[in-house]
Design a protein around this nucleic acid. Structure first.
Length: 668
DNA sequence: CACCTAATAAACAACG
DNA sequence: GCGTTGTTTATTAGGT
């Protein structure tokens, strides 16, 4: 609550903030207490690493690997939970953010701010910059790491050949083990990298620069330090090289520290180190050394290691850093060759990213198979198996992710750009345009929105509707709507006057929101038809087209999975944001109330309730008002349209009333 | 450029 | 009188 008022003063909204501020305090208090941290998926019971085995049978090995994967996943959750994702909660993660933020912030805002302030203040663009920076480092590390791994494998193979005779079996087993470990490490790294990317996707505008501006980002990414170095060498030759080096060294340590915190989570590595094989020290050690090389040698240079120049294809030996710097400035100055090499490197990075995406996808599938679904309702939103090509046409991963969907490379359907409302002023609204299925989007990322001070890419109207539909009775009082907002979105824990006003404004303005007098007051409900009516014009794609596609597909031209995927992805288009799961879910499972994720969990687990694409119960929302005099409904009901129009009056809330065509008819 | 939609701000009334 | 709720109008901005 303190934070809230603080941020409010910071942002200094115009007038009557005070009164409302206090009010919101109350609201938050109640809601916050109620919700706390709901499912949030962190509490999964995961068997902790199978440690101790010296030798393993293949089965054991597999098991071990799975355990490792689990651990990695948990690591993710922890990271997310600890607030890596961004602002929202304060205290506990302050330390974490204190570690991460300052680095980048130091770069962009000379004057130092407290982490908290930063959390409040950091705008998406800034965050983006931060993340890009981190990503750059990660990429760099990744490259090195991969290289190392390769070398390592090679080395191992050699040693294996040599030592293969004595105890072939054991050695082989060990090798295998080491191999597995390496794989795991790679996975781990991949995931972390992915996490970074995803996080970046959260805030960044154009994650997909693969084709176009490719130059800009990756260039920075490839070698954040050496390019400036090169330019420096050219631009200001008089400058003592040492100085610049030192500075960069410092910077580097800073950034490297953050990067390594991702790269080498202590939790996961220990078990690995246990299993290092006889001669295996190198494996783990190298990786460790690798990942931490920067931080351990403050004066080092990313392109300098083990006494040699790491410039691609160079490997010139340099006794010390100074010599290396000279070498760098002379041999790798800014010229055609260097830039070309740089480009190549960029491509390498991109390839790696793609590879990463694929691998993480695989991991996702594995995790899913292991019932590890981290509080995220994959089945609905995305079949997980969206082809990598689809998800990453650009080789990058965009989507906002929550702790719930740590590794998921999925991009919220239709939301690709929607969620990336980068930079822009708070005004930017996007949701409806993209017709992102708010519910699935939310389901996937609610953890994120809950904790990250990121403006959700949905319109107020769709959010309000979502809030209402999530409740079993599909009705909410204004205050309950407020609470939902604050509960679900960190973003709405500040500037309360503003958005609350907006909420009221929307409720009044849109015909789709129907106020119903209740015994205990007034509640708001959603008139789904009205809501649908507002959409048609938008439909960026062209609903009819989509419809045709689907119907066409349904003739079986394409294989089922693809069809499903397609139907899935286009479903939201037909039904407008948010129609699906929660609506049906909540209608079926009252337990929904607590948060978005909740209703989805059970569904995802039992899978019973219709696959996303066709769930009929969506159109359920002619609400019935609890304990309510029927007359109330009239006042605003667009009476005509469906006789069913008031299942409320007649039927049960579940109203299986089948009007699925509705979207079609209305949209087309 | 016109038009539409959404966000934001603000005034105001009714009500408890 | 105050705060909440609800309605309404105006302005601004982004998208088409």
């Amino acid at each position: 609550m303190m934070v809230e008022s603080a941020s409010e003063t910071i942002r200094s909204a115009p007038s009557g903030q005070n009164g409302v501020g206090s009010l919101s305090g109350q609201a938050d208090g109640s809601s916050g207490g109620a919700t706390g941290t709901t499912a949030s998926g962190t509490g999964r019971d995961m068997t902790t690493g199978a440690d101790s085995n010296g030798e393993m049978s293949p089965a054991e090995l597999l098991h071990f690997q799975q355990q490792q994967a689990l651990q990695v996943a948990r690591q993710f959750l922890l990271q997310q939970a600890s607030g890596l994702s961004s602002p929202g909660n304060n205290d506990s993660k302050q330390s974490a953010s204190a570690v991460q933020v300052p680095v980048s912030v130091a770069m962009m805002s000379p004057q130092m701010l407290t982490p908290q302030q930063m959390q409040q203040i950091l705008s998406p663009p800034q965050l983006q910059a931060l993340l890009q920076q981190q990503q750059a480092l990660m990429l760099q590390q990744l490259q090195e790491y991969y290289k190392k791994q390769q070398e390592q494998l090679h080395l191992q193979l050699l040693t294996q050949q040599q030592a293969g005779k004595p105890q072939p079996k054991e050695a082989l087993g060990n090798k295998q083990l080491a191999f597995q470990q390496q794989l795991l490490q790679m996975q781990q790294l991949q995931q972390q990298h992915l996490l970074n990317l995803q996080r970046q996707g959260l805030v960044s505008l154009q994650p997909s620069q693969a084709s176009g501006p490719l130059q800009t980002l990756p260039q920075a990414a490839v070698c954040p330090t050496d390019l400036p170095q090169l330019w420096k060498g050219e631009g200001a030759p008089g400058q003592p090289a040492e100085d610049s080096v030192k500075q960069e060294g410092l910077d580097l340590t800073g950034t490297a520290a953050t990067a390594t915190s991702f790269a080498a989570p202590p939790k996961v590595s220990p078990p690995l180190s246990h299993h290092t094989l006889p001669n295996g020290q190198p494996t783990v050690l190298t990786s460790r050394r690798d990942s931490s090389s920067h931080e351990e040698t403050p004066g080092s240079h990313p392109l300098y290691g083990h006494g040699e120049c790491k410039w691609p294809g160079c490997e010139t030996l340099c006794e010390d850093l100074g010599q290396f710097i000279k070498h760098l400035n002379t041999e790798h100055a800014l010229d055609d060759r260097s830039t070309a090499q740089c480009r190549v490197q960029m491509q390498v990075v991109q390839q790696l990213e793609i590879q990463l995406a694929k691998e993480s996808e695989r991991l996702q599938a594995m995790m899913a198979h292991l019932h590890m679904r981290p509080s995220e309702p994959k089945p609905f939103s995305q079949p997980v198996t969206v082809s990598a090509a689809d998800s990453f046409p650009d080789g990058l991963v965009h989507p906002p992710t929550s702790a719930a969907a740590p590794v998921t490379p999925l991009r919220p359907p239709g939301l690709g750009s929607a969620s990336l409302h980068g930079g822009g002023p708070a005004r930017r609204r996007s949701s409806d345009k993209f017709c992102s299925p708010i519910s699935s989007e939310l389901a996937q990322n609610h953890e994120f929105y809950k904790n990250a001070d990121v403006r959700p890419p949905f319109t107020y109207a769709s959010l309000i509707r979502q809030a209402i539909l999530e409740t079993p009775d599909r009705q909410l009082t204004l205050n309950e709507i407020y609470n939902w907002f604050t509960r679900m979105f960190a973003y709405f824990r500040r500037n309360t006057a503003t958005w609350k006003n907006a909420v009221r404004h929307n409720l009044s303005l849109h015909k789709c929101f129907v106020r119903v007098e209740n015994v205990k007051g007034a509640v708001w409900t959603v008139d789904e038809r009205e809501y649908q009516k507002r959409r048609p014009p938008k439909m960026t794609g062209s609903p009819t087209l989509v419809k045709n596609m689907i119907s066409g597909l349904s003739y079986g031209a394409l294989n089922a999975s693809y069809q499903a995927a397609l139907a899935e992805s286009s479903f939201p288009l037909l039904n407008s944001p948010g129609m699906l799961n929660p609506g049906s879910a909540s209608s079926l499972l009252p337990l929904s109330h607590d948060d978005v994720g909740a209703p989805l969990e059970p569904l995802s687990s039992n899978g019973s309730s219709s696959p996303p694409r066709l769930s009929p119960p969506q159109y359920s929302h002619q609400v019935q008002v609890k304990e309510e005099p029927a007359e109330a409904e009239e006042d605003r009901q667009p009476g005509p349209s469906l006789g069913a129009s008031n299942p409320s009056t007649s039927g049960p809330p579940e109203d299986r009333d089948l009007e699925e065509e509705l979207p079609g008819e209305e949209l087309s």
